[in-house]
């Protein structure tokens, strides 16, 4: 059974059609990359998968692990293992990062029938993951994303993924805004989570991420559809030629 199957997905935002029949199938263990011009609907797809309000699904279906994903609330999806690393992570003033991580982890653990981690075990667990992403204690004690640099926010997203260990991870432009060293750190973090049971959807504009995290498939989203699919070579080709061949409509 596929981990994720998107069939003929049509989505409107404020009555404007954004996705016009997306088909995509991800098997467990696979990493797929989605590329595409600005405004082509990549983030829209990630939000529809994670259940954000404000998207009208006019046709199609999304089957995740054999269940109808669109029937679930956003938090149910998250607890079922759908994780979104946000293109623009949100700041939550007054809420300490560690508290946030702990609340999130325990919500998921309880759902999986595991016990809540006590404070000591939790801290040990988080520190271990944080270290490999070069996140120190001081950063964990700050308020969620508040005043973080772009790169710090992205590392924090990967830390959350490492802690929550999702089945399906959607990474929306996690590589954007990273310096060369941070890109390697983040890539290492993503590769560490590569697993036979886990699927990933990487949304990116740049081939360079895919040098570190090598995808099984690469897709181009244009004009609201998957316009082309291929292997790593497709990313290379796009890097050279751009999106000219896809006749992108610009309004």
């Amino acid at each position: 059974m596929a981990l994720l199957e998107i069939r003929n997905l049509h989505v409107k935002v404020e009555n404007k059609p954004i996705l016009n029949g997306v088909n995509l199938k991800i098997e467990p263990g696979e990493i797929h990359a989605i590329m595409g011009p600005n405004g082509s609907g990549k983030s829209t797809l990630s939000y529809v998968l994670s259940g954000r309000d404000g998207y009208q699904i006019t046709d199609g279906e999304i089957i995740y692990n054999g269940i109808d994903l669109l029937e679930l609330e956003p938090d149910q999806r998250a607890r079922e293992g759908v994780f979104l690393a946000f293109q623009y992570p949100v700041e939550i003033p007054g809420v300490v990062g560690l508290t946030f991580l702990k609340t999130a982890l325990n919500a998921t653990r309880i759902h999986r029938g595991q016990n809540e981690l006590d404070a000591m075990d939790f801290l040990k667990f988080v520190r271990e993951k944080a270290q490999s992403l070069e996140i120190d204690d001081e950063m964990l004690k700050r308020f969620v994303n508040e005043g973080f640099s772009g790169g710090e926010k992205k590392r924090m997203e990967i830390l959350q993924m490492a802690i929550l260990q999702p089945k399906l991870a959607i990474l929306d432009e996690t590589d954007s805004g990273l310096d060369i060293d941070a890109l390697q750190v983040v890539s290492k973090g993503i590769n560490a989570l590569r697993d036979a049971n886990r699927g990933m959807l990487l949304i990116t504009h740049y081939q360079r991420l895919l040098n570190y995290v090598r995808p099984d498939k690469v897709h181009v989203l244009a004009n609201g559809r998957i316009a082309r699919s291929g292997d790593e070579a497709l990313a290379q080709e796009l890097e050279e030629k751009g999106y000219a061949e896809f006749n992108v409509f610009v309004e």
Partner: peptide, 26 residues
């Protein structure tokens, strides 16, 4: 956006509100 961010991390809407409001009141 804050609510959705929290819910995407597995918090119910009530847990999310509680967390955000506690931050507001910190």
């Amino acid at each position: 956006d804050q609510l959705f961010y929290c819910r995407q991390r597995g918090l119910t809407d009530e847990e999310a509100v509680s967390l955000i409001v506690n931050g507001f009141c910190r």
